[in-house]
């Protein structure tokens, strides 16, 4: 397993107005690995995830303090354009959110705005490749012109994953990507996450212990805005350092 650090966060605090949502979180997220964020609802895992591609910038009252680096570069530095950062750090949301456009246009959206394709053939190639990697190509290849909103929930979420990987990001953030899906679609997406690990650094927020154990190599446990524990998934799930982690994993609170 590769062990290079992709994202390093040090002493990150996040405030919503006066309320502090994240307290002093420091974490090294590895390249070519899946990192799972677990913890009870409202513990700040999604908020922290949104710091990593500066999506919190779009919320007026949200302030982020501390240092986050991507490949050693501070993402809050003046010369970093959040728009370009988000092209490198893609995101998949909890609820599938395909645009009210055709399936093709959904996937082609990112490559078009970033000018990744020189010709129509290039774009076709990117779209097909992304849909194939998201394991949905066979289901939609004959109806690329139909609206993406007409797909089933699981297909929509895989379409959103295809849309996210079409911009060729280096990191993929997934905020509870399976919470709206049935077990079959969940299994397909977990399989997909495992494949994506070869080329990306994947961070996934999940409420399912089994999912975290199945797909991730590293696990971070969040509680009340702090990160209590971070380590190899095998260790966190079998021999956690913190009693709260143990209690949460075994279902005694949460």
């Amino acid at each position: 397993m590769a062990t290079a650090t992709k994202i390093r966060a040090q002493g990150v605090d996040v405030f919503y107005g006066e309320t502090q949502a994240i307290r002093n979180v420091s974490i090294d997220i590895l390249a070519n690995a899946v990192t799972a964020f677990i913890g009870p609802s409202g513990c700040g895992k999604s908020t922290f995830l949104r710091c990593l591609n500066r999506m919190n910038d779009t919320i007026d009252i949200c302030r982020v303090k501390g240092e986050i680096t991507l490949d050693g570069q501070d993402i809050h530095a003046r010369e970093v354009d959040p728009v370009q950062l988000r092209a490198r750090v893609g995101m998949v949301f909890q609820k599938p959110n395909p645009f009210p456009k055709s399936i093709y246009d959904n996937v082609a959206y990112g490559p078009r705005i970033h000018g990744l394709a020189a010709t129509k053939a290039d774009l076709d190639g990117i779209v097909e490749g992304s849909l194939r990697r998201a394991a949905i190509w066979n289901e939609v290849k004959d109806r690329l012109a139909e609206p993406g909103t007409g797909l089933s929930g699981g297909q929509q979420q895989r379409l959103c994953i295809a849309r996210a990987i079409a911009t060729a990001p280096e990191v993929l953030l997934m905020d509870e990507p399976c919470s709206a899906l049935d077990p079959i679609a969940t299994a397909q997406i977990e399989e997909l996450i495992d494949e994506l690990r070869e080329s990306y650094s994947v961070v996934i927020v999940t409420h399912s212990m089994q999912q975290a154990a199945r797909v991730s190599q590293k696990t971070a446990f969040f509680h009340l805005g702090s990160m209590l524990e971070y380590g190899d998934t095998a260790k966190v799930f079998t021999n956690p350092d913190h009693e709260k982690t143990q209690a949460y994993i075994t279902g005694r609170f949460g």
Binding site: T58, R86, A87, F93, N97, P100, Y109, G110, I113, R163
Partner: peptide
């Protein structure tokens, strides 16, 4: 228009104008 669409577009690296 649902906020999720706006977030989805911004997360792909689109500018506010796009």
């Amino acid at each position: 228009v649902p906020r999720s669409l706006r977030d989805g577009s911004l997360a792909l690296g689109a500018t506010r104008g796009e």
